[in-house]
């Protein structure tokens, strides 16, 4: 255990994980088979019995679980909007982690928490080239995130989602990047700030980020933050890119004739993608709010729901 503590001191520990059990598919439905987080965690730190828990003695703060969780039960606590605003002040910005603070314009606790949605949002908000400073991942206990992040970058690039946005590159050795201190004049800064579509969001959200056990009523509906980001960003994208986003990130829920209009799926959906318009009728599906988590399909007693990848 002494070892783990040492590891934690190198990684910033789990201080950036925010836990909200009310969003967890397993807590909402005891028969849900979801264990994406536990499968993603390299250290067996996640408990899913009775309640969602993270063992502080095992967690090294790699945030891989947060990128795997579809519903926002595990999320990185850092204010991602503020981070984007910070990056948008500089041309060719560098994003680092808690170990590379000195050579970065903004940092997250660990880059393992950058999910595909984050990458897409970064690419379409920043200009020039974004470098992920991974120069110190090699000797980091969380080194396992590198291959995962590469995979995500690759996936997003393959899907053509970086096409109209800025490039994102990985710097694995100091020679791969050029760090310039932020040297934008006042005017340049305000221009960048004005251009950032996140400016209002950053102001609203900057106060909410703190590492906490969040307690939300189970009946509250909300999207994970990275999905909110995606929803925000896609509004301003070209129809072609939007179409690719739809293919990669959206899902469609459809009902067959077995639906007894019980509205149970409306209740179980953590995201608010299913809504009751008329209690005597099949619920209404709102594609932009669906994370494709699959919980409604598992929950429906009549097996009347089908979830297919790709939006309507």
């Amino acid at each position: 255990m002494a070892d783990t503590r040492q590891v934690q001191s190198q990684t910033g520990g789990r201080d950036d994980l925010s836990i909200d059990a009310s969003r967890c598919l397993r807590m909402r439905f005891c028969q849900s088979s979801c264990r994406r987080c536990a499968d993603a965690c390299p250290h067996g730190a996640i408990g899913l019995e009775r309640t969602l828990s993270v063992d502080p003695a095992r967690c090294t703060g790699c945030l891989l679980c947060s990128a795997a969780c579809p519903s926002g039960a595990l999320e990185q606590g850092a204010d991602f909007y503020a981070c984007v605003t910070q990056l948008s002040r500089v041309p060719d910005p560098i994003l680092g982690c808690s170990r590379t603070r000195e050579k970065a314009h903004a940092t997250l606790a660990c880059l393992g928490g950058l999910a595909e949605e984050h990458l897409v949002a970064l690419s379409h908000t920043l200009s020039g080239k974004l470098t992920l400073n991974m120069t110190r991942c090699g000797d980091c206990p969380n080194a396992g995130i590198v291959s995962q992040l590469l995979q995500r970058l690759h996936g997003v690039a393959e899907a053509g989602l970086f096409d109209s946005g800025c490039r994102i590159v990985l710097a694995e050795s100091p020679g791969d990047m050029e760090f310039a201190e932020e040297s934008v004049g006042r005017r340049g800064f305000f221009k960048a700030f004005r251009d950032s579509i996140f400016k209002s969001a950053a102001v609203v959200l900057s106060s909410t980020a703190e590492r906490v056990e969040r307690r939300t009523d189970y009946s509250t509906k909300r999207l994970p933050i990275r999905r909110e980001l995606l929803r925000e960003i896609r509004k301003s994208l070209s129809p072609a890119t939007e179409e690719r986003i739809r293919q990669r990130f959206d899902s469609t829920v459809s009902f067959d004739s077995g639906c007894t209009v019980c509205q149970g799926c409306v209740a179980i959906c953590p995201a608010g993608a299913l809504q009751t318009a008329d209690p005597e009728k099949t619920p209404v599906f709102i594609v932009g709010s669906c994370t494709g988590c699959g919980l409604c399909g598992e929950f429906c007693m009549d097996g009347a729901l089908e979830i297919t990848p790709g939006g309507v």
Partner: peptide
């Protein structure tokens, strides 16, 4: 269906309802 159950028995045999965990599934 929720965990821990929103509708549960207390040690005193009352069928109790926890508001925070209820999703309203009926």
């Amino acid at each position: 269906p929720v965990q821990p159950k929103s509708m549960f028995k207390t040690a005193d045999g009352i069928t109790m309802h926890n508001d925070e965990r209820c999703i309203g599934c009926r």
